[in-house]
């Protein structure tokens, strides 16, 4: 998923990442062409920061592609911010890693031999949430679908939510 985004999005893309398992993987893989091409919350590990940061980046740099990467729970925390993207008329791409799990906390629980507690969540229709706020929304399950969704999002004058559904445990052995 990350490799597909990196291969498809132009080199001048501005990115933001949320907190959790996806950003560890993303930080290990994402190549920046210039300083601050990727921004993320540092020590505070703020959940929910990637979406508003992408809206701000697009507002400040309307001529450059902007993408945010969020886990599903972090995206849910700020889903209402899509209203701001719609009202400002900006068109960033919001990519959601949808694995129906607070994956990093689940991993930490397992590493400490604790039982699974409070980290599983439901699958929600994030693409429909994007459409409900006036943007584009699409759910993808493989690289070809993600590639098509990214290309359409780049060409759109509205924001796009891309929900990439992955299996719980998909980060195992990778972060």
């Amino acid at each position: 998923m990350i490799a597909e985004c990196q291969a498809t999005l132009p080199a001048n893309t501005l990115a933001s990442a949320d907190s959790g398992a996806h950003r560890i993987l993303l930080s290990q893989m994402w190549t920046c062409a210039a300083p601050r091409d990727l921004i993320q919350s540092s020590g505070l590990c703020t959940m929910g920061c990637a979406v508003p940061m992408a809206i701000g980046r697009k507002l400040a740099s309307p001529d450059r592609p902007v993408v945010s990467f969020s886990g599903d729970a972090g995206f849910l925390m700020v889903a209402g911010d899509l209203a701001t993207a719609a009202e400002l008329g900006v068109a960033p791409i919001f990519v959601v890693f949808a694995d129906a799990s607070l994956a990093l906390i689940e991993l930490k629980q397992r590493q400490r031999q604790l039982s699974n507690a409070g980290v599983d969540m439901a699958r929600h229709d994030f693409a429909a949430i994007g459409r409900a706020f006036g943007g584009n929304g699409i759910t993808v399950r493989n690289r070809a679908e993600l590639n098509k969704a990214l290309r359409e999002a780049l060409a759109s004058d509205r924001f796009t939510v891309i929900s990439a559904e992955i299996e719980p445990g998909g980060y195992d052995g990778r972060i």
Partner: peptide, 16 residues
């Protein structure tokens, strides 16, 4: 080694 540990490029109908 870090770069080689992860997939790069190429589009295909593999799972995301």
């Amino acid at each position: 080694a870090l770069i080689a540990a992860f997939p790069h490029g190429m589009t295909g109908a593999r799972p995301v």
